[in-house]
Design a protein around this nucleic acid. Structure first.
Lengths: 182, 182
DNA sequence: CTCAGCTGAGACATCCGTGTCTCAGCTGAG
DNA sequence: CTCAGCTGAGACACGGATGTCTCAGCTGAG
């Protein structure tokens, strides 16, 4: 019956990714605990949001590590990355929706580090002739994240089947990003 | 020196699309008026947000009209639509970020109407062999809007040049949505 | 000039979300 | 059983954003 910190975080992601202004009552209810207990685990809204943000950025970071961005064809790397990221798409939706999350310098730093890694990956893919050079690498990186967050929202609201989501993201994005072989 | 309603709305879009939880002070300052005057034009935050939402949905509706979704190749239609929508990308970013906007039944109805039109367009494009049928029409429609909002954010924050934005959106999205001629 | 009308600055009341505390009830270990 | 510890429900205080009002200053029409 001990309150599980991870359970609370998961519930918070569930609620906050849909509605970043949700009240603490709602998050507590989603986690199956009382507002008082929620406050015992996280000493306030700010702390909770920050904790969720850290979780999201860590997962994002770990996915970038696991995808091994430097190894193999850019095409294949991106497919690996999508498979790794799609299960955590809700976390990315949270990151996309929580606006003043990056007022925190530590979170901002983490965010920009991961962003730089993704941009560097797309730039490398362009230099190797895999990705189209007419589109700025920064835009490719940003659009990729936008679509990833979009997948998170669509899955949560039942507009996209979880099993289809990796395919939907990869096929749409890669089709637009890859150079035509012709 | 009369307070221009449209000026206020424009300023509100500017601020709220970046930060949906911005205070009324900030919106008033962006519009160059006082909080008191803002409140004279719009009797409260709810009314203001609703008004911006109506504006955004009207523009979206008008763009869909002007693009003439039934006329011509799906490919060309989408290019027309992007050219029409990109100038109002910030409005779409606002729509994407303001979560409880669609608690209002009228706004919800408008939103779903436009969504249905876009989905129907993509479905038609699939039936005509222009768009890939492996991707659900609903996902194409949603991803298109996600990217449109993403363009709005990127332009506002200076990460994407306004003049490049239509090209960036069309090329990336269309590349992923079109069937390969091969 | 004169005055009506509009605006901004500020003060004040109100509401809502949050932070904090208390206490009764439950649970599980001993 | 007994008790320590945890939890939930509720009450209460606090702070911040908003709604409302007043009043002085400015502006432009007549």
């Amino acid at each position: 019956m001990a309150i599980d910190r991870d359970t609370v975080l998961t519930a918070a992601v569930e609620v906050l990714s849909r509605n970043p202004t949700a009240h603490l009552d709602e998050i507590a209810r989603a986690a199956g605990i009382s507002r008082a207990s929620l406050h015992r685990v996280f000493p306030g809204r700010e702390a909770l949001v920050r904790e969720v943000g850290l979780l999201a950025l860590r997962r994002y970071h770990d996915a970038l590590d696991a995808a091994d961005l430097e190894r193999g064809e850019a095409d294949a790397v991106l497919r690996r990355l999508v498979e790794l990221l799609v299960p955590d798409a809700a976390l990315c939706a949270f990151l996309a929706g929580e606006n003043h999350l990056f007022d925190d310098p530590e979170l901002l730093l983490l965010w920009e580090e991961q962003g730089a890694r993704v941009r560097a990956f797309f730039l490398r893919g362009q230099q190797q002739g895999a990705f189209r050079i007419e589109l700025p690498a920064g835009w490719l990186a940003e659009a990729f994240f936008d679509l990833l967050a979009g997948v998170g929202w669509a899955v949560q609201d039942g507009r996209l089947a979880p099993r289809d989501s990796a395919f939907a993201l990869i096929e749409l994005f890669l089709g637009g990003a890859l150079r035509r072989p012709s």
